[in-house]
Amino acid sequence: MISLVIDIVLLLFLVVMAFAILRMHHLLAVAMLFGLYSLLVAGVFTVLDAPDVAFTEAAVGTGISTVLMLATLAATRSTHERRRKGVAWMPLCICIATGALLIYGIHNMPNLGDPTAPQHTEVAKRFIESGQAETGVPNLVTAVLASYRGFDTLGEVTVVFTAGIGVMLLLVRREKPRIRGEQHDAK
């Protein structure tokens, strides 16, 4: 019960934070709020018994994402977004409709933390019962990540590699012609 209360309070903080991100016009403040938001998300993960995900979120979400956002703001020299008045009705209607559909979709989902829920009784049960014996790793998240679903992780590395190549192509390509042009001028 106490963990549910902490969970709800943290989630309400997250809603406030997300709303502040929506309303804030100063982009540096948005970046800082976003870092705080990710840190709170890491807190929620800890409450939900997922310390490995919390570590990743704290390191990758809070650290790298915020640094990337700050680097983008520095590279584009932008501090404020242009203010706009009024509410965008069309997106608001779409959001309310999507939200209503999602609420409808989750209305017959099992209660939070129900041990008899179907997601706990099939594959996960086997991982918990024989995971340590089969892989020799007490941390089941590591066991599933590196052993049972190792190819998934290989795919993840491929995606990260591809994204890295994409970023390099986008940001590095521009430099070369300019340098050549300057050398040409010097001659």
């Binding site: 995900v53 991982f127 998240v141 998934d152 990260v160």
Partner: peptide, 16 residues
Amino acid sequence: PLPQVLMLTAIVVGVA
């Protein structure tokens, strides 16, 4: 552990 593993992957891919 299964959703945790999948979401671990999702976070890293999301940042990429």
